[in-house]
Design a protein around this nucleic acid. Structure first.
Length: 216
DNA sequence: AGCCAGGGTCTAA
DNA sequence: TTAGACCATGGC
């Protein structure tokens, strides 16, 4: 299956995907908090802050207050520093993603990677969902998902090229695609690599059947 | 009770 | 360039 065919199948099965958040700073904030942590913890933290969440509000918190606010997401000391660094970096662009519009995506990515606590996955989440730049997100779910389809994953880089070469550079598409992969992943245990009995995987098999012999 | 959750950095060999 | 230690908490 090509990436495009996979996307079509995902859409048919899971319906319209959502976007992480329309607010770029919310994406940045949450993408750090969610590292190696259950999403429910991030939700709780974010809900407690509510509509106050903004670069200004976070910057004004003391180290102790910030640590306390995000404590339940784990690794809170490290994450607090990362959030500070990320917020300061965003400030270079006046806290507006549009102001980074003339920076080439690879350069923006390198700037993010230079911040301690931001690795490839987090950088790509921020690029796609906050800056709407096409950099396909590769995470554990993506690897599991692709291997369940019987496609060889290889390294992160190889997997990324598989998607980007197949789909073209399209940030919106990448964001929705990643969301759909999560929809699939959330519904299935990590410990079942073959995903037997999974309706989506079944649908893909059927799709392969019908495409092999298009019309009688 | 122990394992896991959407990671990333640093160090050592 | 890869393996292992470390960071910390909540849920089951």
């Amino acid at each position: 299956m090509t990436p495009e065919e996979i996307y079509t199948a995902l859409l048919e099965h899971y319906g319209k995907p959502r976007w992480w958040s329309e607010d770029p700073y919310t994406v940045m904030f949450q993408s750090v908090l969610v590292q190696n942590t259950a999403w429910t913890n991030v939700e709780k933290t974010t809900e407690a802050i509510g509509s106050r969440l903004s670069p200004g509000y976070i910057s004004a918190l003391s180290d102790e207050e910030l640590g306390e606010a995000i404590r339940s997401c784990g690794f809170f000391r490290a994450k607090a520093k990362t959030i500070r660094a990320l917020t300061a970096w965003f400030g270079k662009y006046g806290f507006r993603t549009e102001n980074a519009g003339n920076i080439p995506a690879p350069e923006l990515r390198n700037e993010l990677l230079s911040l301690k606590g931001i690795g490839e996955e987090t950088a790509d989440v921020i690029l796609v969902y906050a800056f709407r730049r096409p950099s396909f997100i590769i995470d554990a779910y993506t690897h599991r998902f692709i291997s369940r389809l019987g496609i060889r994953c290889g390294t992160d880089e190889e997997l990324r090229l598989f998607f980007e070469n197949g789909l073209g550079k399209d940030a919106e598409l990448y964001g929705y695609f990643h969301w759909l992969i999560l929809e699939h992943g959330k519904a299935h245990c990590r410990k079942t690599p073959l995903c037997q009995g999974c309706p989506f995987i079944e649908a893909c098999r059927n799709w392969l059947e019908s495409s092999r012999r298009p019309e009688a």
